[in-house]
Amino acid sequence: MEGIIGYGASIPRNRIKVEEIAKVWGADAPSYRKGLLVEEKSVPSPDQDTITMSVEATKCALKRAGINPREIGAVYVGSESHPYAVKPSGTVLAEAIGATPDVHTADFEFACKAGTEGMFVAYGLVKAGLIKYGLGVGADTSQGAPGDALEYTAAAGAAAYLFGREKIVAEVLETYSYTTDTPDFWRREYMYYPQHGGRFTGDPAYFKHITGAAKGIMSKAGMKPADFQYVIFHQPNGKFPLRVGEILGFAKKQIEPGWLVNKLGNTYSGSSPLGLTATLDISKPGDLILIVSYGSGAGSDGFVLKVTDRINEVRDLAPKTRDLLGKNINYLEYGTYAKFRHKIRKAE
């Protein structure tokens, strides 16, 4: 048996409301709220980045796992906002948690599914018996171009997962990935903001791959939607995950515990992984959970998880995701937000 032995979340405490962004660009806030089903999003402080949030999320995962970090055999951070283009986020994370020097690392990139791919590989190495513990992290401080629709949702957050063969909190029953080459959303090297294909990012991209992965994994596992207590989909906005859930035959109450986007925004590689942490926080032993991520370009990773008794022992060992989401938050005006997100051109 292999599975998740520890999980952790990190969400910055700053928020900006949709109204505040709309005000600056002369957009109709209520229609953005209604259309996206998003009220506000998280904003990283200037001293937070993919690496710092990965460290904090991993420290929470370590608290729950209760292992010696020196025994972690692989550290994978998946993000589309790694602080360096060359020099891995993984080495800083591995050093900060004390996993070095005998550890594998390299960074993962696949738009919003870089985190779940890193989780899959960490889990796979554990399952293959090559390492004792593996760490997969999904983290992002994504940028939305000013005035663009994505600016209302591009947010920041991180979720970390430790995998192992003992003291399992959630067993991995099945994995599956559905991938095609689909140019729905991309960013060229040296460009600051990404570009996207507008409505092309819907049916041929998000919906096709999530339904493809969900159907594929359920078929592999011999399961149907009603078998699951909870399901988490990638959350680029509030509507898409609810709609794809409906298309696949899931009920809203299965989606709700992991549906964070209305208050969090889209944390890109952190999105479905954070939704999973929030779901684990309220899950019970025996619950079956399905998580299906989505990364533009495009692909979806699926995991079928079964929660064990150990969830009751570990859930309170680190902050709960909904507490990080709702407590001690600080609302920003657009000017401060723009300054924090380096959108203001300064002197060289």
Binding site: S45, P46, D47, Q48, I51, T52, V55, Y84
Partner: peptide, 20 residues
């Protein structure tokens, strides 16, 4: 204590991390 960025050496230099 939290792990945070302390500062960075411009857009091209090293990023310095530490405790806050």
């Amino acid at each position: 204590i939290e792990f945070r960025k302390i500062y960075q050496d411009g857009d091209a230099g090293v990023i310095y991390y530490g405790y806050k």
